[in-house]
Amino acid sequence: MAAFKLNGLVVEAEKGDTILDVARFYGFPIPTLCHMEGLSPYGACRLCVVEIGEGPQARLVTSCTYPIQEGLVVRTASERVVKARKMILELLLASCPQSKTIQDLAAAHEVRRQRFKQEYEDCILCGLCTRMCEEQMMAKAIGFRARGERRTIGTPFDLRSEECRLCGGCIYVCPACQLRCTYTQPEKAICGGCANLSPPCVEKEQFHDMMCYMDPCVACEITKEK
């Protein structure tokens, strides 16, 4: 056991627990996007940042990957943390505004606008799908490719992978790809999942360049044409 300060409260926790685990256990909310129980922590989305240390040594770390230590001082909602989180949400909104998950997170943190160039990405590279595929489905059919601005997720050589069993786990966990199953025009996308009576991927010419690992799609059973 290690004792440390969490938002001014002295708490005890097992060594090896992450700040996120302990904070949630004590009821301090920390928003996450790329974190999921049952998958290894990844620290990609940076939404779970908290401030540790004091004075000039204080710094922001991702709580989902930071193991607690004796004597640690953690603030989960300091001014600096809230500011950083809002900025991260603005950046996420700039790249993938059509995601219901990101929209909800932004609303919850009172982010009402974003000041960056608007893009409509299919993927925010959170790595949930690759971890789902590897750790829960034991398949490892998809993974990261290339790096930097050319980084994408997909199967090797963009071919249908022999390891893929079409389980749909990757789509289930994806926070960004509701778009292609919900709405055809990204600028107007306000989720619309509730009104989704027929999936618009039937209109294939609008979707052939979108990333979907399911061939045929488990939802609509339409085979993607290359």
């Binding site: 993974g143 199967t155 090797p156 390891e163």
Partner: peptide, 22 residues
């Protein structure tokens, strides 16, 4: 060759491909 590397070294093709494109 990449498929062969994955097979011979017991790694997953995804990982080998990831390194090769990185």
């Amino acid at each position: 060759a990449l498929r062969l590397v994955a097979e011979k070294t017991g790694r997953d093709l995804v990982d080998v491909y990831g390194v090769a494109t990185f």
